[in-house]
Design a protein around this nucleic acid. Structure first.
Length: 277
DNA sequence: CCTCAGGACAACC
DNA sequence: GGTTGTCCTGAG
């Protein structure tokens, strides 16, 4: 068990920021995450977070995964003081961190994400893990499924993928799994710069510009990647009709994007709750 | 019944 | 190089 006190680190905000589809809230203040072939349980306390794993595992696996060596407060401080909207958004989602997730898993996850909503994306991924992943048992006896490997998904038929409700994306996934098998530069993604990584990722079937940017941000730690979906596009039009100041935030634009996304998303949900009452 | 949710791709012009 | 139709599914 490891307990850390860290200012810009909130599990609920990370959960709801739409970057990780295998992290869930299990109870009021407890969460679990399946990543790195492991199941990690966590508890959010007022001033700290408890991770139910050994000190060794925390240092070797999760420290990097949760991007602990990046100072998010410093990024927030670079925000234009006159930019009221961004100030509010960053303050609201100041506990968000950009997770260092697995490349292969992100490629498939964000291919699934196109024309899809978060709830359904989670369900689709859960299904392919249960059907094609490896069943494991955690130390406390809880069973979970790992994300299927490229080898496995390359052998799965398109029809079997369709039965996971992946729709027309089934063909993309099948083909990308096959492409990855024979892709020679796989190990080079760690050294590719942003533009090159983005371009290379778009060679995979079903990966366009938006999906590629998501993969760059959430798997390759390219914090300058700024995925623009229809949702973000609307926000930019509404709040930045003169254009968004990309130059100012260039190397951390992706972090800013996450603040905007999370702020706008949960703000809308709050509105809905208000109307229902 | 139709529309839309965090797009990509091929087939055009 | 820009535009348009098509591709699944489930919720509203």
């Amino acid at each position: 068990m490891v307990e850390i006190s860290y200012k810009n680190f909130n599990l609920q905000q990370i959960c709801d920021s739409g970057q990780c589809f295998r992290m869930n809230r299990t109870q009021e203040n407890t969460y679990q995450l399946i990543a790195q072939e492991r199941l990690l349980k966590m508890e959010q306390k007022e001033e700290s977070i408890v991770f139910f794993c050994s000190e060794k595992e925390w240092e070797e696996v999760w420290r990097d995964y949760f991007d602990l060596d990046t100072d998010y407060e410093a990024i927030i401080k670079t925000i234009d003081h006159k930019d009221d909207y961004l100030q509010r958004a960053a303050k609201y989602g100041s506990g968000i961190r950009i997770l260092h997730q697995d490349l292969w898993e992100m490629i498939i996850s964000f291919i699934i994400s196109q024309q899809n909503n978060i709830k359904r994306i989670r369900k689709c991924i859960q299904t392919i893990c249960e059907r094609f992943g490896e069943k494991k048992t955690a130390e406390d006896g809880e069973e979970y499924f790992t994300f299927p490997t490229p080898q496995t998904l390359a052998r799965v038929s398109e029809e079997e993928l369709r039965q996971c409700n992946l729709g027309y994306r089934s063909r993309y996934i099948k083909k990308t799994a096959e492409q990855v098998q024979t892709y020679e530069k796989w190990n080079q993604f760690e050294v590719f710069h942003y533009q090159e990584a983005k371009k290379e990722l778009m060679k995979f079937c079903g990966v366009g510009e938006k999906v590629s940017e998501c993969i760059c941000l959430f798997a390759l730690q390219k914090k300058q990647a700024f995925p623009v979906d229809t949702h973000i596009r609307q926000v930019l039009q509404r709040h930045y009709p003169e254009g968004f100041p990309f130059e100012r935030y260039k190397k951390n634009a992706g972090v800013i994007q996450q603040y905007i996304f999370y702020y706008d998303l949960t703000k809308k949900e709050n509105k809905d709750i208000g109307q229902n009452r």
